[in-house]
């Protein structure tokens, strides 16, 4: 009996899977999220055209409504085209890729930062705790989108103009990551303060382990389940933050459009009747953010035995 086999069996018999299967909303959310992630990962294979290849675009195809042949070229596009004649379906898939990439990396950044600072604050206490948590308190008095814009603006101001578009995505990630670390830090700090009083931590201190080893080897594994929940919920926030920034024109550049950029482009045409250019990217964003959020809610309920 290999260890791997028992792990699979343990998972199959676990309450986790059992709870999951009993919540249809969660199953649907999970399917939607997985479907969108797969679309984004295999964008090159799935998308009918490459929306960024300016050479393949035909301006004559501009403003083709969904499922109708173009008046000039006779080509049909499932979700229509935008003003440039870009296939909207392909643009959405590639936009999804940018949105998910930015969202996920930003969450990982926020998580690493928040978990480390939270552990440190909770374990050390005293002035370390005071400095970290007061910083967090000050930061949450500003809307996170404002912080992200601030960081974004400063970075753009410092960078030479020719680099701006190239590193726009990186700057976006850092901006969102830095604005979302607080919930991680607060939760981890609280759990750490509870865990560090437990006797297993005292037993580790007794044999002379240093604080670093105790934090990483003993406490960290015990504070991770709430982190998973926050990460999921923050992912939805990060995706929306990215879309908001891009919508405001300070995020992903038009050369590398995310869902937010597509929505911004689309809203120019909403009142002239080309509704699909706005609506389909917006709907994709909604489906993604909502599903991730619902998954997060379910995770929170499942991992928190007190709510059961």
């Amino acid at each position: 009996m290999s260890a791997e086999k028992t792990l699979i069996r343990r998972f199959r018999e676990s309450d986790f899977l059992y709870d999951f299967k009993r919540s249809p909303v969660t199953v649907v959310s999970f399917v939607i999220v997985m479907f969108l992630i797969l679309l984004a990962v295999f964008a090159d294979l799935v998308a009918p055209t490459n929306p960024f290849d300016a050479g393949s675009l035909n301006l004559m195809n501009g403003f083709t409504p969904p499922m109708e042949p173009n008046a000039f070229t006779g080509e049909t596009f499932v979700l229509g085209t935008d003003d440039q004649g870009r296939d909207l379906f392909s643009a959405i898939i590639f936009g999804l890729r940018v949105s998910l990439f930015v969202g996920l990396t930003a969450v990982i950044l926020a998580m690493v930062l928040g978990v480390s600072l939270g552990l440190l604050a909770g374990y050390r206490g005293g002035w370390v705790d005071a400095v970290i948590m007061r910083t967090a308190d000050i930061q949450v008095t500003f809307p996170s989108i404002l912080i992200a814009m601030l960081i974004f603006g400063i970075a753009r101001g410092l960078l030479p103009p020719h680099l701006r578009d190239e590193v726009a995505i990186t700057v976006l990630i850092i901006a969102i990551g830095l604005s979302e670390w607080v919930p991680f830090a607060r939760t981890v700090r609280g759990t750490t303060m509870v865990e560090k009083e437990k006797e297993y931590v005292q037993a580790a201190r007794l044999i002379g382990l240093g604080s670093g080893q105790i934090m990483v080897r003993h406490i960290l594994p015990n504070v991770l389940s709430p982190v998973l929940v926050i990460a999921t919920i923050t992912l939805a926030l990060a995706i929306i933050a990215e879309a908001t920034l891009s919508f405001l024109g300070v995020g992903a550049p038009p050369t590398e459009p995310s869902l937010g950029t597509l929505i911004r482009i689309g809203q120019d045409f909403l009142f002239s009747g080309e509704w699909w250019i706005l609506l389909f990217p917006a709907f994709t964003l909604l489906a993604l953010a909502l599903s991730v959020n619902l998954l997060g809610d379910w995770l929170r309920d499942t991992l928190n035995p007190r709510l059961k």
């Binding site: 437990k198 006797e199 297993y200 005292q202 037993a203 580790a204 007794l206 044999i207 002379g208 003993h218 594994p221 015990n222």
Partner: peptide, 22 residues
């Protein structure tokens, strides 16, 4: 310090909190 620490140990009250669950 290590030499002394090695010679003394403690058994705690709570059988639930004294072992790292992970």
């Amino acid at each position: 310090h290590r030499r002394i620490r090695q010679r003394l140990q403690m058994i705690f009250q709570s059988p639930y909190a004294s072992l790292n669950p992970r």
